[in-house]
Amino acid sequence: MKWVLFTLLLGSHFATAITEPPLPLWDAEDRKNMIAEGWIAGGSLFTYETLPLEDSTDETPLYVEEPTAEELAVSGEDENEVSEEYLTAYFADKPAGHLVDPQDLLSTREQKDLEAFLDYHAGDSSIDMYVYVFGADQQIPSDVREEEVVERLYSVGKPAVVTYYYLGAPQRSTVYLSPVITDTVSAAEQRRALESSVMQAFGSAKAFEQVEAFLVQMSIRIYWMDRMTAGTAVETMEKIPHSDGARGFHNKKPPVQKRFKIPVWGKMAAAVVVAAGGGILVLWSALMWWRGRVRYRFAEFDVEPRLGGSHAAGIGAVISFASPAIPPAMQRNQVPDYMRRA
């Protein structure tokens, strides 16, 4: 009996546990009052009424004011751009020295070292090297065209290689050549020169050592450009080793090798040989021309006919060419005696 009562109680308990509790119901008047006052928290959720669909056509487009020209100008400015105060010093005129660093990114001593090296290079090469130094993340303003600067400043006078070098970021460097030598040195050669210089620069971690290595390698490359412009380079710059081990930045070894000069007596001897050869050629040509025009006439003598021949009795030699092993003299048939002249 106890077991029966226990089972009935347990079953009723389970039945009440499975059925969900009903949602609280609003009193109609209370709800109206609350809506009239403004807002019911969860009013749209705790209800059995279906939610009304939102009408998208009723939405009005948002109006956002377009930015003004001033706002655009302000937003277009890059804080990494080279400041305007330096642009004149950089790009207005041809620099007096070979190193252009108006921002003083390099220390005075470093500037002097680089200037000395560039001056030494300029004294030893027919192509100058100008280096414009910028910060690692600096940008040249877009209204400054590097090519135009080079054409404007370096078209006249000694040809030059202009390098825009970014201190600490040699991979951003760019190289431009004077228009005079642009045709002689191809774009591919220029690119290779820049790449090899950048690779040399990456051999060091310090910014100044990088620029040193960069300039030394570029100086070597300019030497070969110099030879190409002179028409004496026999190998392309592709074959040039990346650096000459014996030459460094501080030992100031000249980057240009001495050209072989023909001595004066050698030039004179060569001129004499050429003149003699030309003379011989002219004489030989004249001789050939004369021989082609000359006519040979023989005196006609009365010859007594022989062997009954009315026109000819000149019996010449007969040779046999049957065997290559025997020389013609051995295969020569001698003229019989009766055929010879008495």
Partner: peptide
């Protein structure tokens, strides 16, 4: 028969000899 010979007329009789004809033919041998 792989043989060659040279004959000349009376005009060349005084100036040309059998040795000369042999030299000419030998060049072609």
């Amino acid at each position: 028969s792989k043989a060659a010979g040279m004959t000349f007329g009376y005009l060349l009789d005084p100036f040309f000899e059998e040795q000369d004809t042999f030299d000419c033919l030998s060049r072609a041998h």
